[in-house]
């Protein structure tokens, strides 16, 4: 049985302007010790999916579907019981390390809090755990830094602190919401490497939210590509990367910066993500899709397995032959570039 099984999850927010369908029918599984990457543009619902699992959404929320964690449906769990999962069995780190730590509490205090919220440790015990974790995330001279405040750390160091805090209770699942987006490139690489190593040491499963396919390629076992609150394509990392089946995935791959082609233009996907207040009919991507057909405007494509691979799903009306041809074309371009 998978560690986390999410089934047909929807999250709707009531706002003054109407109902925002932020997540609209998402299903996926995360295996113990494995990494699932959720990929998509801003506003595609990837963060909300995770916040829903954690019960951290604010505002007027309606949620349906289920999120079975170790057999317990987190969606139905009362707040009080959900709190025992948070930070203990499921931890989360956020996009912006600059604002995710409380500026008026010392690092040590915030780390200790994570411990004492879940177990009756003494301050000394909590302190030594905190120190241990700071060392684990390679913070230099960790013993001298427990009494320091967040503003005394750089962005990368703060994200290390966040990771330390997230892993301090040895959780089964770590949700990392764009953990490297706010960091410079060198630091990004360091943090990702750190997360990989820690996953090995701690054995936690990871849900990695990102819009960066490059990061996905380096870390993920499975990939879920989301577009406008719905899954566009999902499957094993290799499947999605080498046999992408959805024009949106193609677009994401084409928009990767080509490190070798200095000065070459980026190829962003034209247009902007649709409003979730009033999403387009039919396939939500049709407006921006260069392959769009008449049917795409009216009929919503079902999420279907690719032929011969029941775990590789995509939602697109294109004929299988077209998909294969395009996928091969893109993959060969990518190979050429990175060669």
């Amino acid at each position: 049985m998978a560690l986390l099984e999410v089934r047909d999850l929807t999250t709707h927010f009531s706002t003054d302007d109407g109902v925002v369908r932020a997540v609209d029918g998402v299903s996926f599984e995360v295996e113990k010790g494995k990494t699932l990457a959720i990929v998509g543009e801003s506003g595609s619902g990837k963060s909300v999916t995770c916040l829903t699992i954690m019960g951290l959404n604010t505002g007027k929320v309606q949620t349906s579907g289920e999120a079975l964690f170790d057999g317990t449906d987190l969606i139905l769990l009362p707040k009080r019981e959900l709190r025992e999962y948070r930070g203990k069995r499921i931890s989360m780190i956020f996009q912006d390390p600059m604002t995710s730590l409380n500026p008026v509490h010392s690092i040590g205090r915030q780390l200790r809090e994570a411990v004492t919220l879940h177990e009756g440790a003494t301050k000394a015990q909590a302190n030594s755990r905190a120190l241990e974790m700071l060392r684990a995330v390679r913070i230099p001279r960790a013993e001298t830094r427990l009494d320091d405040y967040p503003h005394q750390f750089s962005g990368g160091m703060r994200q290390r602190v966040m990771i330390a805090m997230a892993l301090i209770n040895n959780p089964d699942l770590l949700i990392a919401d764009e953990p490297t987006t706010a960091l410079d490139v060198t630091t990004q690489a360091q943090i990702l490497r750190l997360m990989n190593e820690l996953q090995r040491d701690f054995g936690s499963a990871i849900i990695l939210i990102t819009h960066d396919l490059g990061v996905v390629a380096e870390t993920a076992d499975d990939v879920l590509v989301m577009y406008a609150a719905k899954p566009a394509e999902q499957g094993a990392c290799d499947d999605v990367f080498y046999r992408p089946h959805h024009p949106y995935t193609w677009g994401l791959m084409r928009s990767l910066p080509h490190l070798t082609a200095v000065g070459a233009e980026l190829n962003p996907i034209p247009g902007t993500p649709p409003s979730l207040l009033n999403p387009p009919s039919g396939c939500r991507f049709h407006v921006r899709c260069p392959y769009a057909m008449e049917i795409c405007r009216t009929v919503e494509p079902p999420l279907e397995p690719a032929p011969g691979d029941s775990h590789h799903l995509a939602a697109c009306h294109l004929e299988e032959a077209v998909k294969q041809r395009e996928a091969e074309q893109i993959v060969s371009e990518m190979m050429a570039d990175t060669a």
Binding site: R86, G87, M92, F94, S100
Partner: peptide, 16 residues
């Protein structure tokens, strides 16, 4: 302040 990231962090830690 309720909208601050560190408040979400605190909740994510399991604080009441």
């Amino acid at each position: 302040t309720l909208n601050e990231d560190y408040v979400r962090t605190a909740r994510a830690k399991g604080a009441s």
